[in-house]
């Protein structure tokens, strides 16, 4: 859809849309996830989160609110953290998508952030954890892990109801110290 479609629509009438109840075409797209191409059938309205979870069975990425409020679905798109529930699957075409399943090395070696979460007991139920970890990896890479206060600020998009926050902050600090090159880049 051209980007001007909405702007061009008259204020009184919504932009042309399919009538409610019309068939919505399922089309194949190719998503590049954790270093591999995946062909997946999606509707235009399918979110990246539902494509990952329901269609590709990559269920490590969690749905906590489906409204962009909790951070549980955080993944990386070309290295940037995004909320998969607010990203349409088609928007992610052509980008490198990274999810929690691809974070450890091919030989199973944990990423420094994963190892730090385990060492600091930075989770309890574990449901928000993939999102926290993906956020933490980006937080360190962005150079926002310089102090406890900075980590808290830049991790505040990821809710944890078990209240593991102090341990998550400690884990991010520990991982940042183990990843000096990333932190300074």
């Amino acid at each position: 859809m051209p980007p001007t479609a909405h702007a061009a629509a008259p204020a009184a009438a919504p932009p042309a849309a399919l009538p409610q109840g019309s068939p919505v075409p399922n089309r194949p797209i190719t998503l590049f996830i954790n270093g591999h191409d995946h062909v997946v059938m999606v509707e235009d309205r399918t979110t990246l989160l539902d494509a990952l979870r329901e269609r590709l069975h990559l269920t490590g990425t969690k749905k906590g609110c489906d409204q962009g409020q909790c951070g549980a679905c955080t993944v990386h798109l070309d290295g940037q953290r995004v909320l998969a529930c607010l990203t349409l699957a088609r928007q992610a075409e052509g980008s490198a998508i990274a999810t929690i399943e691809g974070l450890a090395g091919a030989d199973g070696t944990l990423h420094a952030v994963q190892a730090a979460f385990l060492a600091e007991d930075a989770f309890q139920c574990g449901f928000c954890t993939p999102g926290q970890i993906m956020s933490a990896v980006a937080c360190i890479r962005e150079g926002h892990a310089g102090s406890e206060a900075e980590i808290r600020e830049y991790m505040s998009g990821n809710l944890c109801r078990c209240g593991a926050y102090p341990h998550i902050v400690a884990a991010v600090q520990r991982a940042a110290a183990a990843l000096p090159s990333e932190a300074s880049s």
Partner: peptide
Amino acid sequence: DGLAKIRGE
């Protein structure tokens, strides 16, 4: 159970 949780498994 931590390893499974931090790997998304």
